Amino acid sequence: MTAAKKSWYAVRCVFRWEASEGPSYEERLTLWRAGSADEAIGRAEEEAGRYARENGVEYLEFAQSYRLATDGPPGDGDEVFSLLRDSELDGEAYLDRHFDTGQERQRHARGA
């Protein structure tokens, strides 16, 4: 029996942080070499549990995977995650609703 060919998978897990200012949510991407999406998610969820315990946060039991399109090791410019979401919102309203609410703690570039 031959071993399954392994691919690179990015897995996004979501966490809830409690702070005196109120709750914050973290979307965290980790990279895994695995034989399937299910294997990558399983390994990522184990790591997410450790991360949550070590940081005193709640893992929300939400994981999404994305198989990288590369056969070799990831490199500059490789896509590591993609998620399509259907929406009737125009571009600016979509960004405001999902990514630029004013509550994010991030660095970002948004065209003028």
Rank of each mutant, 00 (worst) to 15 (best):
V57H: 10
D38K: 14
I41E: 12
R43D: 10
E61I: 03
Y66L: 00
R33Y: 08
A63N: 02
A48C: 07
A37C: 03
N55K: 13
E26Q: 02
A52W: 12
V57S: 08
I41L: 06
G56P: 15
E46D: 14
G22W: 08
N55Y: 06
G56W: 04
L31H: 02
G49L: 09
Y25N: 08
N55P: 10
A48E: 05
G56E: 13
A44C: 08
E26Y: 02
Y51L: 10
A52E: 14
A37I: 06
L31N: 02
G22N: 13
L60Y: 01
S24G: 09
E26M: 01
A52R: 05
E54N: 15
A63H: 01
R28C: 03
Y66V: 02
N55Q: 12
E45A: 09
E46M: 12
A40P: 03
G56Y: 08
A44G: 02
A34L: 04
E27Y: 12
Y66H: 06
L31Q: 05
R43W: 08
A48G: 07
Y51F: 15
A52Q: 10
D38N: 13
E47C: 08
E46C: 09
P23L: 03
R53M: 15
E46V: 13
E26H: 07
E26A: 03
T30F: 02
S36R: 01
R43C: 06
R33L: 06
A40V: 02
A48H: 08
S24F: 13
R53E: 15
F62S: 07
E61V: 05
E46A: 14
A34H: 05
Y66F: 14
L29H: 14
W32R: 06
E26T: 05
E61A: 12
T30M: 11
E27T: 04
Y25E: 11
R53K: 15
S65Y: 01
E39N: 04
G49Y: 06
I41A: 04
A37E: 15
W32N: 07
P23Q: 10
T30N: 11
G42V: 04
G22T: 03
R28F: 03
G49S: 15
A40G: 01
R28Q: 07
L31R: 03
A63K: 00
L29E: 09
E58G: 10
T30I: 10
R28H: 07
G22R: 06
G35Y: 12
L31D: 12
A63D: 05
Q64N: 03
G35N: 07
G56C: 11
A40L: 00
N55T: 14
Q64P: 00
A52P: 15
Y51M: 09
E58C: 10
A63V: 02
R67N: 03
L31C: 08
E45D: 12
E27W: 10
I41C: 05
F62Q: 12
A37P: 09
A52H: 13
S36M: 07
S24V: 05
A44F: 00
E45H: 03
W32V: 08
L60I: 00
T30Y: 05
R50L: 13
S36F: 04
G35T: 05
R53Y: 09
E58Q: 14
E47G: 13
E46I: 12
A37V: 10
